[in-house]
Amino acid sequence: MATWSNPSLIVAAIFLVISLTSATVANGGRSGGGRRLVRSYDEPCKKMTLYFHDILYDYSNSTANSTSAAAAKPTALATAVSPNGTFFGEVVVFDDPMTEGTRALPPPSSLRETAAARAQGVYLYDSKEVYDAWFAFSVVFNSTGRRGTLNLMGTDLMSEKTRDISVVGGTGDFFMSRGVATLRTDAVEGLVYFRLQMDIKLYECYI
């Protein structure tokens, strides 16, 4: 019969502890059974509608109300290939309030206090000839109703009435969520303000 040496027992014990710790982390750190994966490709396991408000600072508007700023200017190629320019190459960093069930114009001073979440990330203009943008951002929830983040990325084809971007993950109440966010342009005011309606449908949820 094989016998175990003390070093072998120690290694086995360490491996067991690591395995148990990994299982706890994978279940979101919860005790009492952890989380259960709900997956459906016919009906979403969670859905919500949020309005995304973006106010680009252009040196003339209020710094207090502005929620986004250009971090890189359009490239010379933008004006070379299009008489009107397409902002090709411009990168915008944003910290935008997201409201639930409201379409206020343009965001009132109380918008920050009434926001259901914040969208934080970047969008960049990635087309030479049309006004298309690519988004990568997190929706950050911090309320009694929802906590955690949803991470989204994808191309916003602004000429289309509706367009989808991917929900690629999440944390907290949205741990490891997957799904689709459908965008609709709800309002535009010049080059400074736009509002998007965002219908989020999750098809993989941990509960």
Rank of each mutant, 00 (worst) to 15 (best):
T86M: 03
I200F: 06
K73P: 05
Y193I: 01
V91G: 00
D58S: 02
G28E: 09
H53T: 01
I10Q: 11
A69R: 06
M176N: 14
A26E: 14
Y51I: 01
P44H: 01
R118A: 04
M198R: 04
K161C: 10
E189W: 07
S5M: 10
D96F: 00
I14P: 10
L157G: 02
G190F: 02
R112F: 15
Q120D: 10
L124F: 00
S82W: 10
R30S: 15
T162C: 07
G33W: 05
V11G: 13
A26Y: 14
T79P: 07
F94A: 00
Y131C: 10
A72K: 01
D58C: 02
A117P: 02
R163F: 10
C45Y: 02
A69C: 14
V130S: 12
R195A: 13
V81P: 04
A13Y: 09
N27A: 14
Q197P: 11
A12T: 13
L157D: 06
L191W: 14
M198A: 12
L77R: 07
K161P: 06
E90A: 00
L20S: 15
G32T: 07
A117R: 02
T155R: 08
P7D: 14
Q120W: 08
G28W: 11
F194D: 05
G145D: 12
Y41N: 07
N65C: 15
T79G: 14
F174H: 10
P107C: 08
D164G: 07
F137C: 03
L191Y: 14
S8I: 11
R146K: 13
F137G: 01
S82G: 08
I165K: 02
I200C: 06
E160C: 09
V91E: 00
S68P: 05
F135Y: 07
S127E: 07
V81G: 06
A115Y: 08
K46I: 06
N61L: 06
L77M: 13
T144I: 08
E113D: 14
M153P: 01
A80I: 08
V130E: 13
D164V: 09
R146Y: 13
V140Y: 05
Y41E: 12
A116H: 11
E43G: 02
F52M: 00
A115H: 08
A72G: 03
V92I: 06
I165G: 03
F141H: 05
F15T: 14
G169M: 06
M1P: 15
M158G: 01
D96N: 01
E43Q: 11
T171V: 09
D186C: 09
F174E: 11
M48A: 04
K47E: 12
Q120M: 13
N61V: 02
I200V: 10
C45R: 03
F88W: 00
T79L: 13
K73E: 04
S40D: 05
I10L: 12
L157F: 11
D164S: 12
V192K: 03
